[in-house]
Amino acid sequence: MTARAPVRLLRSLLPAFSLALVVAAIAWLNPRAMSYFGFNLMLSLALPIALATVAQMFVIAGSELDLSIGSFISFCGCVVATWLDQSPLLGAAILLGGVLVYAGVGALIHLRNLPSIVVTLGMSFVWQGLAILVLPRPGGAAPDWLQTLMSSKPPFLPLPVIGSLLLALVCHLLLMRTGYGAVLRGAGGNATAIGRTGWSLLKVKMALFALAGLFGVLSSLALIGISTSADPNIGSNYSLLSIAGVILGGGEFVGGVVSPVGAVIGGLTLTLAASPLLTFLHIPPDWQIGANGALLILVLAARARFSRPEAA
């Protein structure tokens, strides 16, 4: 099995390779973007996207899928721009409530043995509806402390980069180095075995979903801090973006195979590829969405070269 080591190494390097490729393409197309200011601008949405990707990663680690994270981020964003700004305590309580609801969804999925795709689909309607009820029209205002934080300019490295590094480090330690992190992942690989050892599968599922909710809230905070106001559709792309990010980062839909570092890198790659790269390629706006799709395909095709063949 030592022969497998090089292949595994290649696979784990693939997310970084994809990122490098996108950065190289940008550098070639527009060398002036390779500056502190340039990266700060291009990566402006990196933190919200990376946080959303990490949230999705926790759910995928449990062999589930969350199609509602986007509308949850929209909802939380609307809360941040209204209640959190005006009555911080109430706003914080609502956000916490959101995390608890997420944990509840996880519990429901486990106890009733439900398919997560459909449950989170239904929940996406719920969060979207709530977002509209909270903030029917775009508006609101981000709290001052949040705006200041998200527009800060630390020396040497832009805020998004520092934030992403920190995020990757924390999540890596949490999920890949602790005992309970191994339990959380193990439940995605062989739930029966984990259950037999005495761990509560219910708690595991709730923990994974609660973590997703938590990072969803953080993502909304980052997003509103950057955009300074909210609208009920602000997070609508994030469900699918986050899934793509996890997969780009080497995660698999079933089996509990995820990589926190890979997920963050995947999020960064998508941030760059989704808009800045396309702008530099002078792709007309009509075609930008399509170009996103094509880019995704390209990256995954590259991954397929080094990946183990899909079972059956």
Partner: peptide, 10 residues
Amino acid sequence: GAGARLLFTG
């Protein structure tokens, strides 16, 4: 309204 419709459907 739209919000309530979505919420209820979900």
